[in-house]
Amino acid sequence: MNYGPLLFFGVLATLAASWLGLVAVPRHQLAPLDADLSTNSANSVVTYPPARSGQAVQGHAIYVAHGCVACHTQQVRAAKDGSDLARGWGRRRTVARDYLRDSPAQLGASRLGPDLANYGERLGTNAFNLVRLYNPRMAVTNSICEGVPFLFEQRPVGLTGPSPEALILPPDGGVEIIPSAAARQLAAYLTSLSSGGELPEAPLPAKEEGNR
């Protein structure tokens, strides 16, 4: 330990090894990954994962900017790694290819809130989701989610009656709640969340059973 060059070399070599193994090689392995193309019953080509709508892409940026990832994961683990499938958070585990359209992918590390990988498949209507974003406790009693109330505008109901855009809420003294563009984008993004497509590397459970 008293020979300086050896110390320098050792320090750099050890990190170089893990850099090669955990940064360079995974990048090499994952870079060629591309969307899965398959043919459906109507003989047209289906791309998985499907592209998100423009509104949903903007909603992803809002999801990132507000740090929703602090409480919500977007990953479904296999049955041996947790109760995700049993909870109905997805039909199959998520795999690398599910995340091709998100940059950066919002995997998350905390489940104070439910997993959202397949939120779009199990949610109610868009109107319900906007109420949920405005005040989570109006949709789910005792929710500890803070929501994004600041993306909504509170204003008196006009003379011609409630605006068609207003949230559907119990009448509240001539006041209506109007979602901003950002709130609608976020709702569109949540609606677009789905990782349930069939992939060769991630067959749906029924099929998996059949193969055995």
Binding site: V23, A31, L33, A96, L107
Partner: peptide, 12 residues
């Protein structure tokens, strides 16, 4: 790069 690579790199 696209997808989850950033998560691996950030984990490192």
């Amino acid at each position: 790069s696209r997808g989850i690579f950033a998560a691996i790199s950030a984990g490192w």
